[in-house]
Every structure is written in structure tokens, then in C-alpha cells.
Design a protein around this nucleic acid. Sequence first.
DNA 1: CCGAAACCTGAGTCAAGGTTCATGTTGAGG
DNA 2: CCTCAACATGAACCTTGACTCAGGTTTCGG
Lengths: 202, 202
Amino acid sequence: MTEGQAIADKTPRTERGRRTLRKLLEAAAQEFGTRGYHDAAITGITARAGVALGSFYTYFESKEAVFRALVKDMSHAVRSHVAEAVKDAPDRLTAERTGLAAFIAFTRKHPELYRIIEEAQFVAEDVYRQHYLTFVDGYRRNLSAARGRGEISEGPDELRAWMLIGMSVFLGMRYGIWEQDLSPDEVADETIRFISEGLAVR
Amino acid sequence: MTEGQAIADKTPRTERGRRTLRKLLEAAAQEFGTRGYHDAAITGITARAGVALGSFYTYFESKEAVFRALVKDMSHAVRSHVAEAVKDAPDRLTAERTGLAAFIAFTRKHPELYRIIEEAQFVAEDVYRQHYLTFVDGYRRNLSAARGRGEISEGPDELRAWMLIGMSVFLGMRYGIWEQDLSPDEVADETIRFISEGLAVR
DNA sequence: CCGAAACCTGAGTCAAGGTTCATGTTGAGG
DNA sequence: CCTCAACATGAACCTTGACTCAGGTTTCGG
């Protein structure tokens, strides 16, 4: 009757509270990122954060709740990181190249964050879907605009968005996380050649 | 000193044993596929298989062990399914189209199997890597041969393989599992246009 | 047929770890 | 300063579920 949220409002009201919440979120990112959802323990999170076990439940309903909050954070972080890198590209293909390079660089710098988003597929499917649906939506808009400006050929925006995202994710995994035998720029350059020209002989 | 395997050989020696093992593997695929690794229970597997809890440990060391065995199975199943569909394609681009359509059809028919392979990334990373490394290897070989025959343009085989696989996986997820608003053939047709011609205006 | 190996059974064991709670402590407004 | 809401603490609770084991039953070669 009186609370702002649906059930219980765990938003901190003082500066101290906000500080603790931030510590917990960072610790949770570490814990989930390195050990995975299953092996991650609340005591592991609170130990990293340097707070007592009980404090965790001052800020989160459950283990799954932190995870969900974290995925939303990471989702936003990745998208804004890429958006920032791309923001003043002269045309779509250049944007693709810098965006992909930025994405691979991101997975390389924060492999834990990448892992958390992907693991969400099996822990909190709805936020995982939301992440990619949002991503696709932006992508689609960009492709449509570029098509309007005559920068790229005609074709189905949504399907193209999914293809490009799938490529990026796997390239990020392979060349960002698994093995770094090519730099993000090298990967991006070769990829853009493919995206632009295709496989057909001309 | 006497066993064939490293520690304990759990291979069944009688027909009855092989039958039970098969039942357990099928039940495990169901259980892991629908509930995910974390929520899956050994009792769930044995109940589905119609055998006693203890029998499970006659055939597997642990929960993780079944899962690993299952991933290897599924990996082989997917690859042979696609290989079969592609086996007498006249050229590489046709092979790409039929292969993709077969892959999407597969994810649509066996969403649980697809899920198991992907979840392996977080449960048994080594077999997950092995799966894609094997996949890439075959792909690379095919691309190289096609390049030799002049069917496709010059370009880095391995990187192209990763791009194409990433695309397929995401298209399989989106159009095979999440929503089926396009048929596998429609998706494959549009995709092959992109793969072949690229985004550049000509 | 017989005996041993293979296989089956399910109640019981056990550790792990998520969640609760009763009891402090802190700090900002009055 | 005083007070109360916000926040902190960690021992204890309790469910869950992987795994063991002692005692059968089935199969199959000889």
C-alpha cells in the first residue's frame, strides 16, 4: 500500500547505503564473472565487497535478483561503449568497423562482463532477450537510415541486424576472449571487407 | 592398473546395460534441455528413464559427467545432420544455403539439444570449445577448397568460418527457437544473398 | 545348472549454500 | 544531544540435491 515499488523498495536512502550498494554490485560482477552463476556464492560476493552476509539482503531480494540487476547494467555498459565509439562515423560501413573493433576491445578488457550477459541466457532468459532485442532495434534503425541514404544495398533490416550481431558475438568470443592472435582492428578490417563485398567472385 | 580407462570403466558389458545407458542419456537430454544444468536433478533423470537413482552412478561418475557426454553426443548430432544435408551441393554457396536451412530446422526440431550445447559454455568450457573448434575446422577446409575452385573470393578462411558460424547460431536462436515468423528456407535465402553480395551498393 | 560378474535398488548420508533474524551501530534531522 | 530510521552484523536455520552403500536380482559363459 505504501511502497513505491511492487513489493519492497531496496533503494538506499543515504550516501552510505549507495556506497555499499556499489561495492556489492562490483563484487557481484567479479564473483559471477569469474566463477559463473552456479559456483558463485553470496558469501563470495560479500567477502569481496567487505561487508557482512546479511547486508546483501538489505539491497537484493535474492541471488537471482543481483544477477538480473547486473545483466541490465552490463547490457547498458556494452551498448553505450559501442555507441560512443561509433558516434561520429561518417557512414555505416565505417561505423560497422569501429563498432566491431570497440566491441572486441570491450570483451578483451572485460571478459567477465561478456560472460555474465551470455550466461543470462540460462539464468534469466527474459533479460537476455531484452538485451538483444534492444540491440537489434538500434541496429535495425541504423541500417534503415543508411539504406535511406543509399549507403548500403536494399535488404531486410532485422535479419541483417541478427546476422551482424551474431558475427560480432562470436568474433568477440574467439578473438577477444579465447585467443588474441589478431588485434581488434585487424579482425574488424577483414570483417568489414566481408560484410561489404561478400563471398561472390566478381 | 587393470582398467582400460583412466580411472573407472563404466561402459556397459551386456545388452541390458546398453539399453539402460541409452535410456539414461535420452532422459538426461530431456532433463537438461528443459530445466537447464542448474535446475536439472539426477532424480529427475532417473525418474524420466524409469530406473533407480543408484543406477545412474553405474554409468556416470557425476552430474557433470553425463552433461559432458551429452554435449559430445549433441555436437556430433548437429554436425552430422548439417553435413548430411549439404553432402551433394553443387557449389559452396548452395552448400551454405542448405546447411543453414538444415541448421535452423534442427534448432527448431530439437531446441533442448541446442540449449545443451550452448550451456556447455558455462558448465564444461573445454567441450564447448572443442565443439566449435571442430566445426570451424571443417568449415575452413570447405572454404579453402571452394576458394581453390574459384567459387568464392579470396579471404581469410578461419575468420570467415567464425563469422558464418556466429551468424548461423544467432539466426538459429532467433528464427529457430525464439520466434518462427520466417521459415528456415526464407532465412537461408536472405542470408545467402547477404553472404554472397554483401552490403555495398553496386 | 552354477557361480561370478554385471547390473539394479532406494533409503540414508552429508555438505553446501541461500535465506532469515535478533541484536547492534551509524548518522542526519529536529 | 537525542532519536529514529537506515544500515550492518554473522550465527543459526533449513532446504535441496549430489552421492554412497549394503543388500538384492539378472545375465551369461562354461
